[in-house]
């Protein structure tokens, strides 16, 4: 079987796997947000940046090839990842203490993992729309990080087409496929995979709030690297 090396550790891979696939299979955590092994890789958040032959590439999209020397868990790359995470925090409006997702949020989990203690950059205070039109689901765009997982889940798992990303550059935003643009008029249903795939609190199912108390949630108990490898997300 062909091999690659990540931070000096030799790991096998199969033809067609990405660096991320190989790493996950071997129990090596590479921080990621827009990646979820259930869906086609996207490569947009850039948290999974690793160094290959001295150049950066995204582990979640780059094909593994025999003999690759990959650097991942280095101070340089972790600082870069922390800065990218901070960028995501200042771009949107993330008030963790008042968010239902706190403790279960991957953005927060990654931030803890990378030792992020402040937002570093000035906040954008973006104007984002909240859509509570659906009886069972809320869409709070303030917390959207444009990972595109909801779009992919809707297409690939639900065979629908509920979400899409529109707008250019910093005006990027999430749109909903219905004549009114509201979730309530779309064909989403509460048991769709798209409703639970969101790594942040942007898409929440109503009526679930605080069933699990703060302090006993996923990333309250275990760090994201361990959770990620155990649950394959």
């Amino acid at each position: 079987m062909p091999h690659i090396r990540i931070d000096g550790q030799q790991i096998p891979f199969e033809e067609g796997q990405t660096i991320m696939d190989a790493a996950m299979a071997a129990g090596i955590y590479i921080p990621h947000l827009c990646h979820n092994p259930e869906f086609t890789p996207h490569g947009s958040c850039k948290l999974c940046e690793v160094k290959l032959n001295g150049r950066n590439c995204s582990a979640c999209t780059f094909p593994a090839a025999d003999g690759q020397e990959v650097e991942s868990n280095t101070e340089e790359l972790n600082t870069l990842r922390k800065r990218i995470t901070q960028m995501l925090f200042v771009e949107g409006n993330h008030f963790c203490p008042s968010c239902e997702k706190t403790g279960n949020c991957q953005l927060q989990g990654v931030a803890y993992h990378l030792g992020m203690l402040d937002s570093h950059f000035p906040h954008f205070y973006a104007q984002r729309e909240v859509d509570a039109s659906h009886p069972d689901i809320v869409l709070d765009r303030n917390r959207c990080i444009f990972c595109d997982l909801c779009e992919r889940a809707s297409k690939e798992a639900d065979n629908k087409n509920v979400f899409a990303i529109a707008g250019r550059g910093i005006n990027k935003h999430l749109i909903v496929n219905s004549a009114s643009g509201k979730l309530g008029d779309s064909d989403i249903s509460v048991d769709d995979r798209a409703c639970t795939v969101c790594p942040t609190g942007a898409i929440l199912v109503k009526g679930e709030a605080y069933k699990i108390p703060i302090g006993e949630r996923v990333y309250d108990k275990q760090e994201i690297d361990i959770v990620s490898l155990e649950t394959d997300t």
Binding site: K46, R168, G169, I170
Partner: peptide, 10 residues
Amino acid sequence: SCGFCTPCRV
């Protein structure tokens, strides 16, 4: 900037 990736967009 097309806005696809975080480093360039933000």
